[in-house]
């Protein structure tokens, strides 16, 4: 218990630094996430229009899915260098996949008869996409964004290794210096941030979709 008190003590003693690190961390995640959405969403939509693109995207996606986050982050480093920029690239790259996959499956999962009906009333393919498929796919796409965000809160810690700052600073330094209060002061807020974000985004997701089975919650992978 005293360790927890010490950690809180540490946090408040270094509150300025803490805010700085938290801000870096959140900024890193948010910017990478927005960039990932901007790329993955159009590519995902494009993929549903073209079987070759879709096959290719899913195949690459499935391989990419198994590559460990540390590998992605470490690999960015030789090519982009050290600093915030490589942190963005790594998180962006890792964040793409869940959004891409969910965009494709979300649109594909829209009931064929619904699409047929839209075609039947004379909608063009673009109108169908805009007013039928995309609205129905929104919860699934959002689930992908949620997964991707949570993964990247974790990856944000790893990004410290390639000089991108964030809460990883305290944890990594603390581990190196055997400074337990510092470790916890860096770890607990990040854990709470991830859990809190997941719950909040999950609530939004649930509002977007109705009547989901229990236990069918989207997988958020640890990093």
């Amino acid at each position: 218990m005293s360790l927890l008190v010490e950690s809180i003590q540490y946090l408040f003693d270094n509150f300025e630094t803490f805010l700085q690190l938290l801000q870096e961390h959140v900024f890193l995640v948010v910017v990478a996430e927005v960039a990932a959405v901007l790329v993955a969403l159009p590519v995902g939509i494009l993929a549903t229009r073209n079987d070759a693109v879709k096959r290719y995207a899913l195949r690459v996606g499935n391989v990419f899915h198994t590559i460990p986050p540390l590998a992605v982050i470490a690999l960015v480093f030789p090519f982009v260098g050290i600093g915030m920029k490589s942190g963005f690239v790594a998180l962006w790259a890792y964040g793409l996949l869940p959004i891409l996959i969910n965009t494709i499956t979300g649109i594909e999962e829209v009931d064929e008869s619904t699409v047929e009906a839209a075609r039947g009333v004379g909608m063009t393919e673009n109108q169908i996409l805009k007013s039928v498929q995309l609205p129905l796919a929104v919860p699934v796409i959002f689930a992908g964004i949620r997964t991707s965000t949570i993964i990247n809160v974790g990856n944000g810690y790893l990004a410290f290794f390639i000089g991108a700052g964030g809460l990883g600073d305290w944890v990594v330094t603390g581990i190196a210096l055997f400074n337990n209060p510092q470790i916890l002061a860096g770890a607990i807020p990040g854990a709470l941030l991830a859990i809190g974000l997941d719950l909040a985004l999950g609530r939004v997701e649930n509002r977007l979709r109705t009547g989901d089975e229990p236990g069918q919650r989207s997988t958020t992978a640890a990093a």
């Binding site: 809460l167 603390g174 581990i175 470790i183 607990i188």
Partner: peptide, 13 residues
């Protein structure tokens, strides 16, 4: 699962 691994290691050390 949402707990970042580095953070979890930090909590466990």
């Amino acid at each position: 699962m949402t707990i970042p691994s580095i953070a979890l290691f930090g909590l466990l050390i």
